[in-house]
Amino acid sequence: MEKRVVVIYPHPDDESFGAAGTILKFREEGVPVTYLCGTLGEMGRNMGNPPFANRETLPEIRKAELLNACHILDMDLKMLGYRDKTLEFEDIREVALHLKQILDELKPTLVITHYPDYAVHPDHNALGAAAIEAVQLMDTANRPEVWAQAISNNYMDVLGKPDIVNDITNYFEKKMEAIFSHDSQAAGVLGQFKHVDKLESDVQDDIKKRFSKEHFYRWKYTD
């Protein structure tokens, strides 16, 4: 059983779309979970039609949504303070050292992050790479396991089948609640799914199939 889990993703809503069920499972088992969120997603494109936000107000809206999601998922939150859509331009070593300092304090047995080069968004790839380097910089005796999440269309063709496939059917409703707590972003993408129970049964089945499994690869360090 894990002693502590740390989730490292760059944006508010990455945690809910990517690992909400896994997080809920760990919390049900009594395992503490901390989310290290890279940015406030302040460059998000969805500001409504008509607009409900502007560039000045969107960060606070997304922060409030993130706090709500973390409450639903019953996990702690630490904001890393980076700027949205600029993580790829940060010095990866400096970001890794920043993350290592936090990991040394939290002493997780498991870190969950994005799989570099197979996570679609440049911020995903950059922070995933920094997280993996941060763990590599740790003393091997204290190094946690890393689960890396790939989400590109071709990841299975290149990487093979994931090592971990979590069936999170029992947490589906709570996962959807966490996703929709990020209303400024999820409403546009998944607005039609907001009331899943009112949709046709075949549509319900498709949604549950898409969101009821979470996949990860164990990162293999060579030293």
Rank of each mutant, 00 (worst) to 15 (best):
G48A: 05
G191H: 11
R143N: 08
Y155L: 13
E2A: 06
E173K: 15
L73N: 08
E173F: 02
D197F: 08
D223C: 01
Q192E: 15
K220T: 04
I164G: 00
R45P: 08
G41T: 08
F193H: 03
N46P: 00
H182T: 07
K63S: 07
F193D: 09
L190M: 14
F52N: 02
D223E: 09
E90I: 09
G30T: 06
I112S: 04
E145Y: 00
I168H: 02
D13P: 09
H11S: 03
G44M: 08
P108W: 14
L190H: 12
M156Q: 14
K78P: 01
N154G: 07
V165I: 15
S201Y: 00
V33P: 05
D104I: 15
E145C: 05
P10T: 08
K161N: 14
P50G: 12
L24H: 01
Q101W: 11
D74A: 11
T86I: 10
A187N: 13
L97C: 08
W219E: 09
V95A: 00
L103Q: 09
I92V: 15
T140C: 01
D14N: 01
E65A: 00
F26A: 14
V165S: 08
P116C: 14
A141P: 10
V189G: 02
S212Y: 00
I179Y: 00
V7E: 07
K194W: 01
M156N: 04
L36S: 07
H114K: 14
D84P: 00
E65K: 09
Y82M: 12
I164Y: 11
M138L: 15
F216H: 00
S152G: 04
V165Y: 06
H124I: 08
A150C: 02
R62Q: 06
P122F: 06
D167W: 02
A131I: 03
V5L: 14
T169I: 05
I164C: 01
Q204V: 12
L36V: 00
H182L: 05
F17W: 01
N49F: 03
F193N: 00
D139A: 15
N153T: 11
V146M: 04
E177L: 06
D74H: 11
V135A: 14
R55W: 14
L80C: 10
Y118N: 02
M79C: 12
F180W: 10
E65S: 00
K85D: 02
V95T: 13
K100M: 15
G128L: 10
K209M: 14
Q192H: 15
I102G: 03
H98F: 14
V31C: 02
I8K: 04
A69S: 15
N154C: 04
A53C: 07
K25N: 09
G128M: 09
I207S: 09
D91Y: 12
D91W: 10
C37P: 10
Y155C: 13
P59W: 09
I151A: 06
I92T: 06
E90W: 07
F180Y: 06
T57I: 01
F172K: 01
M43W: 13
E65I: 06
T34R: 04
F89Q: 07
N170W: 11
E42P: 05
K194E: 11
V203Q: 11
D157V: 08
P144G: 13
